[in-house]
Each structure stands twice: as structure tokens, then as C-alpha cells.
């Protein structure tokens, strides 16, 4: 678990900040937020508290190879729930990632409250937690994928080498049979060589396609 927090004051009254928060995006300094949708909203007729649930769409800044490896997409979505309470002059905004949440969650809370008649205090905290149990399942999945890939390539290596051997020995068999006893000794190191070769496309695809740093 990792924590982050920051606090400062805006030189605007609380009501201006709270009206302004609905106009935060689009924002030239936060171009990663590309869409915002309200999916639920209620106004409590007793307390006057407004609860709003929104979905924010972001373009991820994660390296492409991470996005691919974890089966995500370039678009990441965040669930955001805000409460505006005029009676206590508190606004809380809670956000959590929807995308890739099986691997890690980023839980953010923002709080706006009056610091004075003309100033508003802003407090932001975030908890980032990797889901260890699920990292294990991701690791298992990766291992399985690597094993499958290995098997496929090993299969290709084997059939490729079979062709080489056939071409090599069929000519010679025409003349003599004396090489046959040695073939096992030759085959073993060649098999190893083919298995190693068969890994190269895998490493290349990881390196190029996913632009490892």
C-alpha cells in the first residue's frame, strides 16, 4: 500500500470552488481526461445533499507493453462519487479506477471546505494498493502463456529440424547406413539450439511491440 497526500488553499470562496468543480474539464493541463458522464445523481429532499456518480474516461499514460501484458486498453475509466453538503459546507469526491482494477486500485479522496470567507482548503489523499492475490493469478497466467508459447515454438523447432535432418540424411542414406548410430548425439545439441532460436521472436515481440524501457 502506498499513500499520497497534499493540501493547499484556493483564493476563492467555497461556493465558487464548488460551482467551478463541474467545469474542471476539459482542461488543457489535464488532457488525459477525455470524457465525463454522469451515471447517477440524487438530491436528498431532507438534507439537501447532492450525490453524483460519474464515469471519467482517460487516455492512459502507462507504457504500451504494460497495457498489453495486463489485457487493458488505452482508455481507462474511473468511477467518481461526489457529495455536496451545503449545510456543513463539505464536498468530498472519491475516485477509484475501474480499468485494471483486478491488479491495483487507486483510491483517491478530495475534500473542499471553507478556510475563510474568501478561501477554500483543498485536501487530497490517495491510496494505491496492488492486489497481491491477483498479481499471483496474473503471474500464473503469464507463466502459462509463456509455457504455451514455448511449446508452440519448440514444436516448430522440432519440425524444422526434422526437415533439415531429412534433407541431410536422405542423400547420404542412398550411399551408406553408417551415420545412423551417431544421429542421436548430433540431434541433442541441435534440438537445444532450435529451442533457443524459437524464443527469439518472443523476446523481439516483447521488446519492440511493448517498448520495454
Amino acid at each position: 500500500m502506498h499513500f499520497f497526500s497534499q493540501a493547499f488553499q484556493y483564493d476563492h470562496p467555497w461556493s465558487h470552488v464548488v460551482i467551478g468543480m463541474w467545469h474542471k474539464y476539459p482542461n488543457s493541463k489535464c488532457t488525459h481526461v477525455v470524457s465525463i458522464d454522469t451515471i447517477d445523481r440524487s438530491i436528498d429532499p431532507q438534507t439537501g445533499i447532492i450525490r453524483t456518480e460519474r464515469v471519467l474516461g482517460c487516455k492512459q499514460k502507462a507504457p504500451m507493453w504494460i497495457v498489453k501484458l495486463f489485457g487493458g486498453s488505452e482508455d481507462a475509466f474511473v468511477r467518481e462519487i461526489s457529495f455536496v453538503d451545503p449545510a456543513t459546507q463539505n464536498v468530498t469526491i472519491t475516485s477509484v479506477n475501474l480499468s485494471l482494477s483486478q491488479f491495483a486500485t487507486c483510491y483517491e479522496q478530495i475534500h473542499y471546505t471553507p478556510a475563510s470567507a474568501t478561501q477554500t482548503s483543498f485536501l487530497q489523499t490517495a491510496e494505491i494498493q496492488a492486489r497481491m492475490a491477483l498479481w499471483r493469478s496474473a503471474a500464473d497466467g503469464l507463466e502459462k502463456w509463456l509455457v504455451q508459447r514455448f511449446e508452440q515454438n519448440a514444436q516448430l523447432g522440432k519440425s524444422g529440424f526434422t526437415d533439415v535432418l531429412r534433407n541431410l540424411w536422405e542423400e547420404r542414406d542412398i550411399g551408406s547406413h553408417r551415420w545412423e548410430t551417431d544421429s542421436a548425439c548430433i540431434l541433442a545439441p541441435f534440438q537445444l539450439f532450435f529451442i533457443c532460436i524459437s524464443w527469439i521472436p518472443l523476446f523481439n515481440s516483447l521488446r519492440q511491440g511493448h517498448s520495454l524501457p
Partner: peptide, 10 residues
């Protein structure tokens, strides 16, 4: 995390 009630401010 249903978040039907306002959370305690941090």
C-alpha cells in the same frame, strides 16, 4: 464500496 453516504472527510 457503495458510497451511498458521504464519507468522513480525510
Amino acid at each position: 464500496n457503495p458510497l451511498v453516504e458521504p464519507p468522513t472527510p480525510p
